[in-house]
């Protein structure tokens, strides 16, 4: 079922709303809390996020990617293990590869996905599938070189919650 807040609006929609000029960290935090409370949260949420990451609206995709990162850091082992499967990673690959959606995805979204995948290979070296997917993307020339991780990504997860502006 959809994760709903008091307003009845999907919490996933709220956390990734492209009409917001900035990421709403409290909405993301609420979303992560709901994922942790809902028994189906960890297994259903990755797919909800994958769908938004594949959105033609750049902002929605970018916000969804941030939510994904935060969920991996804050929603526990079950969420993490869903995301570490090829079944999920393939959804990110589809956004990058010109064979699927890559031709009409913006460089900004692709760059973020590459950054996220790379950071996961650094922080979760035990996740062989993440490493394999990343290596294959490099081999195919879809990823040209390892991205430079921004300063706030140098600390391993769980990352602290950013303060809402």
């Amino acid at each position: 079922g959809r994760l709903k807040g008091k307003s009845g609006r999907g919490l996933g929609d709220k956390a990734t709303d492209p009409s917001m000029s900035e990421q709403d960290w409290s909405a993301i935090q609420n979303f992560c809390d709901q994922v942790n409370t809902d028994p189906n949260g960890p297994t259903h949420t990755p797919w909800l996020l994958a769908h938004k990451i594949q959105s033609p609206q750049e902002k929605e995709a970018l916000y969804a990617l941030t939510v994904l990162e935060m969920c991996v850091n804050h929603c526990g082992e079950k969420f993490h293990s869903e995301v570490a499967k090829f079944r999920f990673l393939n959804e990110l690959i589809k956004v990058l590869s010109p064979k699927y959606l890559g031709s009409w995805t913006t460089e900004k979204v692709k760059g973020r996905i590459i950054e996220i995948l790379y950071s996961w290979t650094v922080w979760f070296p035990e996740d062989i599938k993440i490493r394999d997917a990343y290596q294959m993307l490099k081999k195919q020339g879809i990823i040209k070189q390892d991205p430079k991780l921004p300063v706030d990504k140098i600390l391993p997860p769980p990352s602290p919650w950013p303060k809402s502006s």
Binding site: K85, N90, I93, K94, K99, K129, M136, Q140
Partner: peptide, 15 residues
């Protein structure tokens, strides 16, 4: 057993 077959079916997309 369900988990094992899920693992077997988990493949990387051809790129």
């Amino acid at each position: 057993l369900g988990e094992e077959s899920e693992e077997r079916d988990d493949h990387l997309l051809p790129m």
